[in-house]
């Protein structure tokens, strides 16, 4: 009996795109399984969009190969794109076309338009398709791009920073849509530079730095990477639990200035909450560091001039 092995939704084999001067993508080996939500994380210029364009067959690799459902994304580009929904990093200009016409135009290229799905997506994101593209705000343009990527219910979604420009409510709606799409059997590959976003929606995360994949992590591992800068203000006259804070695992760089404490929280907040339990806290501010700062602390990268020491 012949046992058919599951073909990877995405496979990159020593995939390289060299733009010169150290820019591009180098020796990417990656595999994404069907029905997986894979996040591609990296700061600006790390090579996320280059990877996505290579997967879409829009640019040609310098060496190596990119495969989607076992098909060569360059040679079999048309067949690949039949099975893929794509959301580009920058929504292109459609000038005076109405949203409904953009949908019909690009949907027409696929041969048919799944009208109920289009309607459901437009309603879900409260997108008026009767407006002209040039009248759309940047958020509405992004919503239209989401409709275009999801409207034919593809097996694989390749999304380049899909939540950029969306307000928080629509971001939540988008995360819910991702969940439903994955539950319906689709594979999702998305790029982001927001750690909490990929942590929220992805099963696995690839971390890209200067064109090279530095880590592929499961969600649990990602939580160890996660760092928050916290500032806690205690009520005037109340006791600051300094010794408990300093002895709590996962809290680092604890500094006390009067009734204000600052520290870094690595991973879970449980330890911090336990340490301050019973104290009168008047204010607590938690800030997620930028990816640049995260890379500096986690991967011990050289510090750019723009960042404070």
């Amino acid at each position: 009996m012949l046992v058919e092995m599951a073909v990877a939704a995405i496979r990159a084999s020593r995939l390289t795109k060299d733009y010169g001067s150290g820019h591009g993508l180098f020796d990417l080996d990656l595999q994404v399984s069907p029905q997986e939500v894979f996040g591609f994380l990296g700061p600006n210029g790390a090579g996320k969009t280059t990877t996505i364009r290579l997967l879409m067959g829009l640019i040609h690799p310098t060496s190596g190969g990119a495969y989607v459902f076992g098909l060569d994304s360059g040679r079999d580009a048309v067949e690949v794109k039949r099975r893929v929904g794509y959301l580009p990093g920058d929504v292109p200009e459609f000038g005076s076309l109405r949203g409904s016409e953009v949908v019909a135009y690009l949907g027409g290229m696929r041969g048919r338009i799944d009208r109920p799905t289009v309607r459901a997506l437009a309603e879900r994101f409260d997108l008026d398709l009767n407006r002209r593209f040039r009248e759309y705000s940047s958020g509405n343009k992004q919503k239209l791009a989401i409709v275009l990527a999801f409207m034919h219910r593809p097996e694989l979604l390749i999304l380049d920073e899909p939540t950029s420009g969306l307000d928080p409510l629509n971001q939540q709606e988008f995360y819910a849509l991702l969940q439903e799409t994955r539950d319906a059997g689709a594979t999702i590959f998305l790029s982001s530079h927001v750690l909490s976003e990929v942590e929220r929606v992805c099963d696995r995360v690839g971390i890209l730095r200067s064109g090279r994949l530095v880590k592929v992590a499961q969600l649990d591992e990602l939580r160890h990477i996660r760092v928050h800068q916290v500032e806690i203000e205690f009520a005037p006259g109340s006791e600051v639990p300094e010794s408990r804070l300093r002895s709590t695992l996962g809290l680092e760089d604890v500094k006390v200035d009067g009734n204000v404490v600052t520290c870094s929280v690595h991973g879970s907040f449980d330890g911090l909450l336990h340490a301050i339990a019973g104290s009168k806290v008047t204010n607590l501010v938690s800030t997620e560091p930028s990816l640049e700062e995260l890379f500096l602390s986690f991967f011990d990268e050289p510090r750019p001039k723009a960042l404070p020491s």
Partner: peptide, 22 residues
């Protein structure tokens, strides 16, 4: 008039004609 639908004009689905219509 608010709309959530793709336009019904069939020309958008026909190669060449969609370019001319636009």
């Amino acid at each position: 008039r608010l709309s959530r639908d793709a336009t019904n004009i069939p020309l958008w689905r026909v190669p060449v004609l969609r370019g001319l219509y636009e």
